[in-house]
Design a protein around this nucleic acid. Structure first.
Ligand SMILES: [Zn+2]
Ligand SMILES: [Zn+2]
Ligand SMILES: [Zn+2]
Ligand SMILES: [Zn+2]
Lengths: 138, 138
DNA sequence: CTTGAACCTCTAGTCACTAGAGATTGTAGA
DNA sequence: TCTACAATCTCTAGTGACTAGAGGTTCAAG
């Protein structure tokens, strides 16, 4: 059994975040000492590691809630899990796509001015004022 | 002179968002009719277009505030503008980098299970539980 | 038994909006 | 001119995933 601080150290999840996960229902309510402090065991540690890893991969709290629900029922079909993963992958790909468009335009904009001029003639400001200068939609 | 709704239509910025930008100091306080409704002119339209374009490119409200400040002083050095653009580009590149790592892992995870199995044996759930299965840091 | 780090709960703040309530105004048709 | 009613107004609260801080209590080492 270890304290919330110890759990935090082992998982690299900050203490208030652990409490937040508990409040959100991701972590079961921990056992308490007679003085009301949380105590965790190996199961708690594993669950928090799971949550942390999923968050690192960009899954939302809501998605993780479903995933955990599934994990708690080893006999259920895992279809939902794959669905969630596939949709997360699609999300990430969408984001990459969008960011690449932004990168192109931002590179053009940044390269357009060395910062030694005056606001009035600045290509950065002109570009922001006029989307027509952009090479594509973004 | 046109109403906030008309401005919204022309810029594709929602009405409450326009009011929000005003509150944040991005838009000057609009003139009002005798009945207290906002009225805008060409200058207001152009400024909102600028803001909208900058937001579409991912600049923060705070950054846009600086950019507008600069735009209002045509004689100042534009160094800040380039700095902001360069740092925004760096941000975007960082995000792309990170998302590409996520994409790799998520693809592996998604591909690892067709969803026809049972939760207990699901590669998706196993992967989330164990970062060791990941090919790289992410 | 004392000290002080760690813990507790609760509230509020972050960012860039978005939603809704309840009241007022603008405008077009009768 | 009157009447609908869409559009506008202000204000408050909610979103997601935390983070910060206040003010009080508990744990564990010495
Ligand atoms: Zn410049
Ligand atoms: Zn553009
Ligand atoms: Zn599966
Ligand atoms: Zn991993």
């Amino acid at each position: 059994m270890f304290s919330i601080g110890e759990l935090s150290r082992r998982t690299k999840v900050k203490v208030p975040t652990i409490r937040y996960y508990e409040e959100m229902g991701l972590l079961a309510e921990a056992e308490r000492t007679s003085g009301n402090q949380r105590r965790y065991d190996k199961a708690g540690l594993e669950r928090l590691s799971f949550i942390r890893h999923a968050r690192d991969l960009g899954f939302s709290i809501e998605a993780i809630l479903s995933l955990i629900e599934l994990q708690d029922h080893p006999d259920r079909s895992c279809e939902t899990a794959t669905d969630i993963a596939v949709s997360q992958l699609a999300d990430v790909r969408e984001k990459i796509k969008r960011l690449k468009l932004l990168e192109k335009e931002l590179k053009r904009i940044s390269d357009g001015c060395d910062g030694h001029g005056v606001s009035e003639n600045c290509y950065v400001l002109a570009s922001l004022a006029d989307h027509e200068l952009c090479e594509r939609e973004h």
